[in-house]
Design a protein around this nucleic acid. Structure first.
Lengths: 357, 357
DNA sequence: TTGTACGCGTTATCAT
DNA sequence: ATGATAACGCGTACAA
């Protein structure tokens, strides 16, 4: 026999404050205070309340609390595509850090590099309905109308790895321009002759900045960009453009690829389809922060964004804004990038493998 | 000049139904109905309401609606570690599919393979506070006490890629036992002699099932397992155990690795630290569903879980349970696994690269 | 079709 | 320290 349903109304009824209060023989406020960390309750009543709550299997209703306090302790995170392993990493770190502060993540995937402004706007409106305490935009551009909405609702927004024309929005970015410069220097000093660049999405600020730094630095050394293609941060597109670049008579001998995700595709195409050796025939420099696990030891030098610094900055800006009630403005953080050399993959010769260790 | 704050109360005040109603000169219910898809409102009043709402920048408060309707349209998803690219993929698909049905994802990361039962319990209690409409557990075990809680709250739970001793919980898994069998057959028919297995977490059902199928099939062919190690689904641990297995006199010539994530580590260790060629010296079979992008063309055969089928099953079970009000029970779905051969990576010879195409 | 009034579960205010 | 009561913003019988 199951417990009987109270009445014919709602399908099921949760245990509420009121019932706990009744069983404990106290007022609802006493119960509320018992479950409010900083409140003052007599030890005796507190015990009675907890006992009653335990008996009834009571747990506070965060939704009702939100309605009353106007704090949901929910942070919305908008991400475009999780194929680029940089973002799962970020999400994981964000979640850990925010959970430690009692916040939770409401996740939104804004698919499609081809999402229209309206799509994004409606998504944001969707988010706002949930009365989130903050928003991390790691995906789309923020239209000024949306910024206005967030401003009106006084919701802190942090643009993650994106910049926007809208003023007064906090942003956390890594130094993509300097990253591009670093990539150029690496290739130049390794003696590359015909240096190419494979861009991400053309209207993406990260791609633009990386290209700018890269081309600038080449120019400072009196070297032009030998060839340029667009991979749209997409695996297939990057592979396709690689094939195309190498179908010409004059082939590049070095490539700076807009992010790791595309770099995989480029390496794949180079080695398996075009039969070129990396780095002997072509050198490749990638850009992003894919966990080592995904690399499998490929020969590749990468410009890494520091995921820890970026999430840390994001969280601190967010929390500070939330607690201070400051809407928007300032809070622009640029984290440095790092050059990381990955291990070389070579097929070992029998002689080598025979040698101890 | 900005709009003036209403009063000294809460820091900011959102636009509500009431204000819209007042401006439109109608009742609050009229406004409510206007924003309720299937309601009956006169076209004329609807227009007035929408106009007023637009002017005031009104958007419905999902939290208040939840309190009233007892439907949050939020699904909690619990994942352990996002380093294994299988899970970002799942999350992305889940999110897309559920968003299409008007649901949103509240994401929880239950870090640490070493999380205690209590950790998980408190996390779940945390989740329950948000009155989620459903839970996807892709990470932790479900204790029977938790199951009882969910049952009491009448919240549908789907165990994703996990099995539990608790009865009457919906589960969606791929056929890990058959996957293990497939792996064994592949290695046997390729002439492997000394076949090893690297397990994931010892208490993980997926790892146990894969091993069971693998060992069973070997036994059916009169072959014992040559060697066994544990990688704990961790990159470093997998690399370490690989080094150890190959430091002995008798080295395996084939390995079945519990998932792709560890397979990367194994390949890395084999090729770069131990100087062994894959697949010439050692054959490796992986298990999971990492996007092609991450592979970079490694020689590896993988047993793939079908992410699409699994999410599809998860969503349909969830939605069906939610709408029907059925708490738990039945709903066990096992999706088939597939064998996928990845492209071979070889360093091209000069002769090859000179040849056209 | 439209409006009134109450309930959803909790917190905050103000007495006591 | 404790208790009564009014919000919080919205859905929804129910009555008109």
């Amino acid at each position: 026999m199951e417990t009987q349903k109270p009445r014919g109304g709602p399908p099921s009824t949760a245990v509420t404050l009121v019932e706990v209060a009744r069983l404990a023989g106290v007022s609802t406020s006493a119960v509320s205070r018992t479950f409010t960390p900083g409140a003052s309750v007599a030890e005796k009543t507190r015990a009675r309340v907890l006992e009653a709550a335990r008996k009834l299997g009571y747990r506070p209703n965060a939704i009702a609390r939100t309605l009353s306090t106007r704090k949901s302790r929910i942070i919305a995170v908008v991400v475009s595509y999780l194929q680029n392993q940089f973002y799962p990493t970020i999400i994981e770190k964000l979640s850990q850090s925010l959970q430690a502060h009692g916040y939770h993540l409401l996740l939104f995937i804004s698919n499609d590099a081809a999402a229209t402004d309206d799509d994004i706007d409606s998504l944001l409106l969707d988010i706002l309905q949930y009365q989130v305490d903050g928003i991390v935009l790691a995906s789309a551009m923020l239209s000024s109308s949306l910024a206005a909405h967030c401003h009106a609702a006084s919701i802190p927004v942090v643009l993650f790895n994106r910049v926007s024309a809208v003023k007064d929005v906090s942003t956390v970015v890594s130094d993509n321009v300097e990253g591009g410069r670093l990539a150029a220097r690496l290739l130049l000093q390794s003696g590359a002759e015909r240096i190419g660049f494979i861009a991400g999405l053309e209207d993406s600020s990260t791609s633009q900045e990386r290209e700018r730094g890269f081309v600038d630095e080449l120019a400072r050394h009196g070297r032009p960009l030998f060839v340029r293609g667009t991979g749209q941060y997409d695996f297939e597109a990057a592979a396709a453009v690689t094939r195309e670049l190498f179908s010409r008579d004059e082939k590049p001998d070095a490539l700076f690829v807009g992010n790791d995700h595309m770099a995989f595709a480029v390496l794949d195409a180079l080695r398996n389809e075009l039969g070129l050796a990396v780095p002997e025939d072509v050198q490749v420099v990638g850009f992003d922060n894919v966990p080592q696990a995904a690399w499998g030891g490929y020969q590749l030098t990468t410009i890494e964004q520091n995921a820890d610094l970026m999430t840390q900055a994001t969280v601190s800006i967010l929390l500070e804004r939330i607690s201070s009630g400051v809407r928007m403005g300032a809070g622009h953080v640029t984290t440095p990038v790092t050059v990381v050399h990955r291990a070389t993959t070579r097929k070992a010769t029998k002689a080598e493998s025979a040698a101890p260790r």
